[in-house]
Design a protein around this nucleic acid. Structure first.
Lengths: 125, 125
DNA sequence: ACCTCTGTATATGCTGAGTATATACAGTAT
DNA sequence: ATACTGTATATACTCAGCATATACAGAGGT
């Protein structure tokens, strides 16, 4: 497990850990159901509090990248389609929110936006 | 000039002022070169510090929505409002298209997306 | 049983960004 | 002169975010 903490990076430690592990899971460098380093072991390795590694793991678990068995360890979650769907949904929601925000700034109503969506749908078809 | 401050909204006061004036400029409710209420007058009106109204005006000026003549007043910047609206519209369309594209990839129907928009609209309100 | 490993839960200290403010200043107009 | 404009600087308060120590509870090998 190679995690590098860059103190100059400005990014929070827990976030650096979160990002690097997430990448390794997505890239397949970490196999499904493989055991991850313990939050305490990794913390000792990086010379930080284990609460910080725990936070990174919590974040990853919340997003479904790993699962935890108390008193045993943390494991890479089997990557399923649902997970990717969730990510997609978040992106879609973000785009819609952004569109609505801009619409509000331009004085457009929600109904106007709905109309634009219907129009775009017809275009597609 | 009708500005409403909602203390329960959670949004900062300066931001509420900023957003409402910006909206009125973009929508055309305020004409080009029209004089805006003085930061002090508006502040007195809203019963807040004039520093807060100043901050809203500063933000608007930084984005080019108004210009200031010291010791005289603040004025709506001459600006092709139509052009600005067009830019906004393009952005909105792009976001919607992007959302629809991702939705299609996830196997969501157009009606699903419409439902998401309606939901987001309720959330906003 | 015991010790040591695992993850969990709660409470604490610190820091920085964000928000709103008063007060003193300087230019314009009547 | 005075009554408006906007400007500049310094201050107080709050709150979210980050990292932490300490105390707890279950699993497993010696």
């Amino acid at each position: 497990m190679d995690i590098l903490i860059d103190n100059k990076s400005g990014a929070p430690i827990y976030d650096q850990i979160y990002t690097q592990i997430k990448q390794q899971i997505i890239s397949g460098a970490l196999a499904e159901n493989q055991m991850l380093p313990s939050i305490r072991g990794l913390a000792k390795d990086l010379r930080i509090s284990f609460i910080t590694t725990k936070r990174a793991y919590e974040e990853l678990e919340k997003e479904g990248f790993l699962y935890t068995i108390p008193a045993k360890g943390c494991y890479v979650a089997p990557r399923n389609v649902e997970l990717l769907r969730e990510e997609h949904l978040k992106k879609i929601e973000w785009h819609l929110d952004e569109a609505l925000r801009l619409a509000a700034e331009s004085g457009l109503s929600g109904e106007d936006v709905l109309e634009m969506v219907r129009f775009a749908l017809e275009e597609q078809a």
